[in-house]
């Protein structure tokens, strides 16, 4: 037995608007007015947004420069922050696997500013990604 991957339960997703939770948004900058970074594993910053208080924390993504395993370790980082929801442009197969195992819902196809992403999420604008939206190495600098 190497690993067991738990898929995201739809119930988690449906309950999202009533739960008090931490949302992670991939971001190009460190404010709520920054554009959403379309990459997950190699995004420039993670913004951890508390949907109850409206407070947030910006965190530079040190995994972005990894030759390999950026998605895995970014998934790990996000999981360790107790996040329940990730809003991003795209997510690759390895990151998706880690986030699923941690019971985190990933919403892809998110664009605009971080603030707009959070609003869009609250209004149910995005769909949870049941499968990865892109292949490996999507976020590599020269691709």
């Amino acid at each position: 037995m190497t690993l067991a991957v738990n898929t995201v339960r739809t119930a988690d997703v449906i309950e999202r608007t009533v739960m008090i939770m931490k949302i992670c948004i991939t971001s190009e900058g460190k404010t709520l007015d920054s554009p959403v970074d379309p990459r997950f594993g190699r995004c420039r910053n993670f913004i951890f947004f508390d949907s109850e208080t409206g407070n947030f924390e910006a965190c530079e993504n040190g995994n972005a420069q990894f030759q390999g395993g950026a998605g895995i370790q970014s998934g790990q980082l996000v999981a360790s922050k107790g996040v329940k929801v990730v809003l991003t442009g795209n997510v690759g197969p390895n990151a998706h696997q880690v986030l699923s195992a941690a019971g985190i819902s990933v919403f892809t196809g998110v664009s605009g500013t971080v603030k707009e992403a959070v609003e869009g999420y609250k209004n149910g604008k995005y769909k949870a990604a049941v499968v990865p939206s892109v292949g490996s190495k999507f976020g590599m600098p020269n691709k």
Partner: peptide, 13 residues
């Protein structure tokens, strides 16, 4: 080589 991820146990799982 960043080949391992560990998701800690929580109350739910």
């Amino acid at each position: 080589y960043h080949a391992i991820a560990v998701v800690p146990a929580s109350v739910e799982k």
